[in-house]
């Protein structure tokens, strides 16, 4: 599979660009966090496409962002549990 570049991405319709990035990010993130991959990707897709492209090319950047998002998701879940418990 050829690398996803900014020019390839730019040639796609706006609504498909996030989809393309998500498809490429999925196996990478699934390898790090299999259980949370879907939620992590839905969260990181809110980031600028240029940064997402950088994450595809830089494992360090990808791991850093994944750690950040996992912390946010776990914090969100913890708050929901507290609210649900009253």
């Amino acid at each position: 599979q050829e690398p996803l570049t900014a020019s390839i991405l730019a040639s796609a319709p706006c609504e498909e660009q996030k989809q393309m990035l998500g498809e490429r990010l999925f196996p990478l993130i699934q390898a790090i966090h299999p259980e949370l991959a879907g939620k992590i990707i839905s969260t990181v897709l809110e980031i600028d496409n240029s940064e997402l492209l950088h994450m595809l090319q830089s494992p360090e950047s990808l791991h850093s962002k994944v750690d950040e998002v996992v912390a946010v998701l776990q914090d969100h879940k913890a708050k929901e549990v507290v609210q649900t418990a009253g």
């Binding site: 609504e15 996030k18 989809q19 998500g22 498809e23 999925f26 991959a37 879907g38 939620k39 990707i41 839905s42 969260t43 897709l45 809110e46 998701l73 969100h76 879940k77 929901e80 549990v81 649900t84």
Partner: peptide, 26 residues
């Protein structure tokens, strides 16, 4: 629905069109 947003955010699945978080209420 049980009225809880504990399952938010929605999950991205390969092959399923992604419409973004803004289009989905928590």
């Amino acid at each position: 629905s049980n009225g809880s947003s504990i399952n938010w955010p929605p999950e991205f699945h390969p092959g399923v069109p992604w419409k973004g978080l803004q289009n989905i209420d928590p």
